[in-house]
Design a protein around this nucleic acid. Structure first.
Lengths: 334, 334
DNA sequence: TTGTAAGCGTTATCAT
DNA sequence: ATGATAACGCTTACAA
């Protein structure tokens, strides 16, 4: 089987305790001993068994990521952010999908606890009363990314969705748009739905613009949602600008607009939400609300690790969004 | 601290052995005993400590994914495929980035061995002689995804890059294109570079088309590579069609073509490679070589797990690509 | 059907 | 500076 410290101890004529000390660079041994141990370890091709270590130290140096199935669009960036920081601190990352809308969240959490992760990051899954209670009970440091818990007491890092959507809408108003549509939002979504809808609505109101219900087409943040919304506009009131629930939605809108011979931004302005890579790679590049996904992952991970090691309390953070002006919005003449 | 089987044993008036049996659903106990144990476990909020289990069973039910930093584009799909299957079989997934071009591969492998993963999946990192030797030495079942080892002896799942690029080029020829460019390939890349270049070259040759070196612009598979390539074509020989090293490259090409007032596909045909989500979401949707990323992840994971559990040997597999005809290629009149 | 007890590979506490 | 040795939480013969 695999080499153990026992094998090394034998070969180097020391005790397992000494081997352990050397291996962990703890100090308390002579240079000569250290060299002998290290040499033996190398010769035998030793790899430390972390499971054994975990058992006694009661730490795993592992953090668990729970992510819904759908978030494939920004998936990469957020996970990369997390993993980069985790790596720097010597932590491993264990990843699990929690199904659509986090249906498998309980399973996922159980898995994480069984594996005794030192901390948990939950991405984009809303925690209602029941779920947040579960998380608290587990007693594992947990941080939410791009989502919140019902009572907002679990620490989170996210953009202010209300503000972001208000800003996007206001930007369009500044460009003299009056018939501004909202596409692809799921109004039942407590984190990415309700607040964004409210931001849109309130902004119109604050600017004395009437709300036209036919301009609000709900959906599920997907490309298809965008397509459907645009088709609907084609048959009803045609807006001059559309704020979309996501970049995917925006691209869906643009795709059917294009098919219908409507040019963006000349005849129709579109703003997205997320700033995933598609936003800047598509033609014309999409004007969109940028969420700093990599940053969210990285900062979140850092906070989590700090809270694990220094036992310091995690606080929540609203991370700034940014409106990236690209080429899908046209300023209207007054 | 956390409840252990000892606590449960005490509470249920049985031995730890019985608790273990019940918990693992092993059989060999009365219904009444089982109920008592299960009840006690629930009351005490028991979560099994997998580390302890691993230590004795010498299995972790964990598979490790090593992925380069750059592959963010298809990242999601491939990992999702892996995780879905892993979940079905009760395996966890531990993920690590191996840096650009897999610079940190050795570190990543060490991490996986320390954690005693049952199997390893290496994605998109070429294994030269030295690296493949290392992997073999580790003695951990390993499968390569979208890459190969120098001697091709390590099991892999990938598309035939040569064939795929040959096919893409041939498709363009069938559409009566003669001046066909190649953009964004890194010719030093043994897995995604050399074979694709050869496929392009040989296809031209087989069809009596002269190779024009100014039509071959190397790069690194990125959006920027595509932009640069297109800029170059603008100042040199203008092709009628471009085969791109990736979808990102294709979008880069299209973006500067658009800026230069060149319309796709009317004036310029473009075919991509990968079929990431951007391919079908962009306008016009991209004609591209589809690599079945999700499938690759899923099948790879399944094979790996089979090899772990049934000790059956893994074989390599060339997985079929598909040319997705969308709207960026125009058929020329003869 | 159930219990006893010996590990699994480490770390950590005491001695020496 | 080093060594014995008792945990850590679980599985698994072997007994009963």
């Amino acid at each position: 089987m695999a080499t153990t410290i026992k094998d090394i101890a034998r070969r180097a004529n020391v005790s397992t305790a000494t081997v352990s000390r050397v291996i962990n660079d703890i100090g308390g041994y002579g240079d000569e001993t250290r060299d002998r141990v290290l040499a033996a370890a190398k010769e035998l091709g030793y790899y430390k068994n972390e499971a054994a270590t975990s058992l006694v130290t009661n730490k795993t140096k592992t953090i668990g990521i729970i992510i819904p199935d759908v978030s494939t669009s920004f998936y990469g960036n957020i996970v990369t952010g997390i993993e980069d920081i985790a790596y720097d601190y010597g932590y491993s990352v264990i990843l699990t999908h929690a199904g659509v809308e986090g249906k498998r969240l309980v399973d996922s959490l159980k898995l994480m606890v069984n594996r005794r992760v030192d901390g948990i990051m939950i991405v984009s899954i809303y925690l209602n009363q029941e779920r947040q209670e579960l998380v608290r009970q587990l007693g594992v440091p947990t941080i939410l990314l791009s989502t919140i818990s019902e009572d907002k007491q679990l620490p989170y890092i996210k953009v202010d969705d209300y503000e972001a959507m208000y800003h996007a809408t206001h930007y369009l108003i500044q460009q003299n748009h009056q018939k501004i549509a909202l596409a692809g939002i799921n109004p039942d979504d407590a984190v990415a739905g309700k607040p964004r809808l409210a931001g849109y609505l309130n902004c119109l109101e604050d600017n004395q613009l009437a709300v036209d219900d036919s301009l609000i087409v709900f959906g599920d943040f997907s490309f298809e949602s965008g397509q459907q919304a645009m088709k609907q506009y084609l048959h009803q009131t045609m807006p001059t600008a559309i704020v979309c629930a996501s970049d995917d939605v925006a691209l869906g809108v643009i795709s059917v607009a294009h098919q219908a011979g409507i040019r963006v931004p000349e005849q129709l302005s579109v703003v997205g939400y997320d700033d995933t890579s598609i936003a800047w790679m598509t033609t014309p590049p999409l004007t969109t609300i940028a969420q700093p996904f990599y940053e969210m992952g990285a900062r979140g991970c850092q906070r989590l690790i700090h809270s694990i090691t220094k036992k310091q309390v995690m606080t929540s953070e609203i991370i700034p969004f940014e409106l990236k002006e690209r080429q899908t919005v046209r300023k209207l003449a007054r």
